[in-house]
Amino acid sequence: MRQARDLLRDEDLRPKLWLYWTDLLLSWAGLLVGIHCMVDVHLPWPARFAGYVAAVILGYRCALFTHEIAHQPEKEFRTFRFVWNLLIGIPFLMPSFTYAIHLEHHRRRSYGTSHDGEYLPFGTRPVWHLLAYLGQSFFIPLLAIFRFGVLTPLTWLGRPVRDWVHQHASSMIIDPAYVRPLPSDRQLSAIRLQEAATFGFLVISTVLNVCSWMDIGGVRALVEPWLLLNVYIVAVSVIFINAVRTLGAHRYYYDRRAEDDRPMSFTEQLLDSVNYPRRPFTTTLWAPVGLQFHALHHLFPSLPYHSLRAAHQRLMAGLPADSPYRQTNSPGLLHALADLWRRASESQTPKGKVERGKRKSSELEAA
């Protein structure tokens, strides 16, 4: 850490807000154009398919700005967070409060434990867990509609319901057993405002689509009857790509829940994370907004996304040959996914179970 900080000391690593605004607004405008092309029945199918591809890529990029919002200074990004919620968070049914718990994933005493909702030991579980995790992408949009269209008004009935919904149905996580801590009064006010806005958006959207299908009040001229289906297709595609990226973000070696839920060492956390420095153009498509440098992000979580590549290059040039950081680089996503599949398959064999038991014993002795 000391060597890495020294190497980056002369770099201007502050977030450039003008770049955030430009990136977000251009991506959002491209998303709207893509969806418009998808639903325009007068366009030939290649143009409509190109619109679908553009909508998925740019919608995905817009959505992942929530990751930057979670890490960057609250005061400096207050307006940006507000506008992002209006343009993306509320229409995508993922207001920023649902990702605020992401910081627990970066706390050294939480990472990989039951307090980390963004970690599951896929590398030590049967491969069907991987397939089930990818398969849930088709249902998450429907669950989001239920969460904000049904559960939100139920939270207005009383505190017991509100607390349960907050703890079990208000976080973008991969661990369904995760229990979110209850919010402070200040946090709760912001959460309830975002919930109400998302509920209102769902109600208005439903009314407009019903009127469009029934051709009431000339709404069909403004809202395409098949718009919701196209949006669902884009949403599922975005969620699926993000699920694949998530499987490649870490190596998922450790199963702390099977032991004593003790945290990993910092070196273990670093080596469990992955960088993808090669093929920057294609990598940026499936890991946008700096997420292709996930190990570097775990090393310096507050680095803005636009500084990560330059910081990575400086670290690779300056760190010693035996630095653990060099081991975080992967040749590509397919290589990482194949390795994860292999380890998950081998972990269920008798030999794999014995080796896993020996590794746990040695780790506990070292601790």
Rank of each mutant, 00 (worst) to 15 (best):
R2A: 13
Q3I: 08
Q3D: 09
A4D: 03
L7K: 14
L8N: 09
L8V: 03
D10M: 08
R14P: 10
P15W: 00
W18K: 09
L24G: 01
L25C: 04
L26H: 04
W28R: 03
W28A: 05
G34Y: 02
G34A: 07
I35G: 04
M38V: 03
G51I: 11
G51W: 04
V56L: 10
V56R: 07
L64T: 05
F65I: 00
F65D: 01
F65H: 09
Q72G: 01
P73G: 01
P73W: 02
E74F: 15
E74M: 15
F82C: 09
G89Q: 02
G89F: 04
I90T: 06
P91F: 02
P91N: 02
M94H: 02
S96G: 06
Y99Q: 15
L103T: 09
E104I: 01
R108L: 05
R108K: 12
G117W: 00
G117A: 00
Y119Q: 02
W128K: 13
H129A: 14
H129W: 15
A132T: 12
L134Q: 08
L134M: 11
Q136G: 13
Q136C: 14
Q136W: 15
L142A: 11
L142Q: 12
L142W: 15
A144S: 11
T152K: 09
L154T: 10
T155Q: 13
G158R: 07
W164Y: 13
V165E: 10
H168V: 12
H168P: 05
M172N: 15
I174M: 15
A177E: 15
V179H: 11
V179K: 14
P181G: 12
P183A: 08
S184K: 13
R186H: 10
R186K: 13
R186E: 14
L188K: 10
I191A: 07
Q194N: 10
E195L: 12
A197E: 12
A197T: 10
G200D: 01
L208Q: 07
N209A: 06
C211T: 03
S212Y: 05
M214C: 13
M214F: 15
G217Q: 04
V219W: 10
L222M: 15
V223L: 04
L228E: 06
Y232I: 06
I233A: 13
V236D: 05
V236R: 00
F240A: 07
V244R: 04
T246R: 14
H250S: 12
R256H: 06
R257D: 11
E259P: 04
D261P: 08
R262N: 14
P263H: 12
P263W: 11
S265E: 06
F266A: 09
L270C: 06
L271T: 03
S273G: 02
R278K: 11
T282E: 15
T282S: 15
W286S: 15
P288Q: 11
P288G: 08
H294I: 05
H297I: 02
H297M: 12
L299H: 10
L303A: 01
L303H: 03
P304H: 01
P304Y: 03
Y305F: 13
H306A: 11
A310N: 11
H312I: 11
L315D: 00
P320V: 04
Y325D: 01
G332D: 03
L333P: 00
L340M: 05
W341V: 01
E346Y: 12
K351M: 10
E365D: 10
A366N: 06
A367N: 14
